[in-house]
């Protein structure tokens, strides 16, 4: 498989000198689903923003198909990589289909406006993400699960070869978590490379091709889910209160402790 997204020796230092990322190397191929896991504060979100070209690393580089992201203008960057935030900073009262059309910004000509190809891309993305029936609803009226589907649809409509997703299942019930992982896997099967950060280790172990365990800004382990999600390593990183069980080709990991 050819590498589409590559991060080389990424460093990110805060003005105080504290390092959020310390020499991260990652490669993702077309059609691959990579989950980045790790404790809170490990640098997952920072890494994702660097991979999406929204945050310039202090040192190192991110390349998509050989083109360094830092050198691209915003429009060119957006044609190569789509970013799905964990939450929208503000939720505007727009129709879902208009919101998803926003994903086509990098493709729409300023003077001609959206073309048929843009509306078709929106339709395809909405059906692929199971959000077709939400088309005429207001974004402000949707539940958390519906809004996550719409955010993913907007990223799919962006038609970028790389999609970067920050904690897509935070605040979702179990059924919606399963649905979102299935959706991410299907987006990868269409040939995109999909990178996500998550705390949902069990589902990540079944949906991902590769898992990277990030600890203190460094990649502690990277590889196939069963290789990375080893009980000893997980207890070392997350502490002892875990239920870990290999099952059906994945790993069931749940927080588990005697409380009170």
């Amino acid at each position: 498989m050819t590498t589409r997204l590559e991060a080389r020796a990424l460093e990110l230092a805060y003005p105080s000198g504290a390092r959020a990322l310390a020499g991260v190397n990652l490669k993702v191929a077309a059609g691959e689903l990579l989950s980045i896991v790790g404790p809170n504060g490990a640098g997952k979100s920072t890494l994702l923003r660097c991979l999406a070209g929204l945050l310039a690393p202090t040192a190192g580089a991110v390349e998509i198909d050989g083109a360094p992201l830092g050198a691209l203008r915003p429009l060119e960057r957006a044609r190569r990589v789509a970013f799905v935030p964990q939450f929208l900073p503000a939720v505007p009262d727009v129709l879902v289909e208009d919101f998803v059309l926003g994903g086509r910004y990098a493709h729409i000509d300023r003077w001609r406006g959206p073309t048929r190809a843009d509306y078709e891309a929106v339709e395809r993305a909405l059906s692929a993400c199971g959000a077709a029936e939400l088309r005429e609803r207001l974004l402000t009226e949707l539940s958390g699960g519906q809004r996550q589907r719409v955010l993913l649809a907007r990223a799919a409509a962006q038609s970028a070869p790389v999609i970067v997703v920050d904690e897509p299942t935070a605040a979702l019930d179990p059924a919606h978590q399963v649905a979102v992982f299935a959706l991410l896997a299907s987006l990868a099967r269409e040939g995109r490379c999909v990178v996500l950060a998550t705390h949902e280790l069990s589902l990540a172990s079944r949906a991902s091709d590769t898992i990277a365990l990030l600890v203190c800004g460094q990649v502690r382990a990277v590889g196939a889910p069963l290789e990375v999600l080893q009980p000893r390593l997980l207890r070392e990183v997350y502490g002892p209160d875990l239920l870990i069980e290999a099952r059906d080709g994945g790993v069931l990991v749940a927080p588990w402790a005697r409380l009170g």
């Binding site: 999406a52 044609r79 505007p92 727009v94 919101f99």
Partner: peptide, 25 residues
């Protein structure tokens, strides 16, 4: 106006979000 109208619509979900969509904020 034509240089900022579409962009200001995308600003409604936040400046960072508009930037991720390719807007030169």
């Amino acid at each position: 106006v034509p240089l900022v109208a579409r962009e200001l619509d995308l600003f409604r979900s936040g400046e960072d979000d508009a930037q991720a969509l390719g807007v030169d904020t």
